[in-house]
Design a protein around this nucleic acid. Structure first.
Lengths: 106, 106
DNA sequence: TCCTAGGTATGATTTGCATCATACCTGGGC
DNA sequence: GCCCAGGTATGATGCAAATCATACCTAGGA
């Protein structure tokens, strides 16, 4: 696991929100890509999921008509212990969903 | 502590190297800014220290003629438990110093 | 005072990234 | 077959960030 890729992936609010929501679900349920309330259009969302996938932060499964993501929790916990805890705690305190961070073109 | 700022700060290899080296020193000794072997010129180094400082990852003390940085370990551990451990382990495996990551203008 | 050395501030340049619009693909329903 | 809906791929655009060169500041030594 490349820490650089991981931190670059988690530097974005939308991506951090995705991982945080997955991490906050202790049952590790698979979620549809569209089920995340992200303030971006489809294409950008696809981009974010790609970055997260390449950083090893999510697994993505193709349904043909749609696709779903899930959290490789054990893998992450083994290589980056404590990380998911940080993310889900940020989610609870409302920082990531509050949209206080970076937004580029808008 | 803003997780966005922290991750953005640690997304850069040079900055991650600085924090990792500080974290790897269990005695938390203060280090001169110039003592880090970073592949950038003076001005860029100053920039990196500024980013780390604003993310709360280092403390910086001005000597007039020079300046030194140290690690607010307790503060970081309290807000981001486990993070310093990740960084210092990456350092031991040689990833951050190996310059495999991002370089912009060169 | 002059020179040297470490840091900082500023301006310019370049690269990377986030975003969008658009077009395309796939599967389901009619 | 046709249309719709969810995702993806591509190209363009704009902003942020990383870097450098240069100039400047501060402290120490000759």
């Amino acid at each position: 696991m490349d820490l650089g890729k991981v931190f670059r992936a988690l530097a974005d609010d939308s991506r951090r929100q995705v991982v945080a929501e997955l991490a906050a679900d202790t049952e590790d349920r698979e979620r549809a890509c569209g089920s995340f309330d992200l303030p971006v259009k489809k294409a950008a969302r696809t981009h974010h999921f790609r970055v997260l996938r390449e950083a090893g932060m999510i697994m993505q499964r193709d349904h043909g008509n749609g696709s779903a993501v899930s959290l490789p929790r054990q893998d992450i916990e083994r290589h980056l212990p404590g990380l998911l805890q940080l993310l889900s705690e940020e989610l609870k305190s409302g920082s990531a969903t509050g949209r206080t961070g970076n937004t580029a073109a808008g």
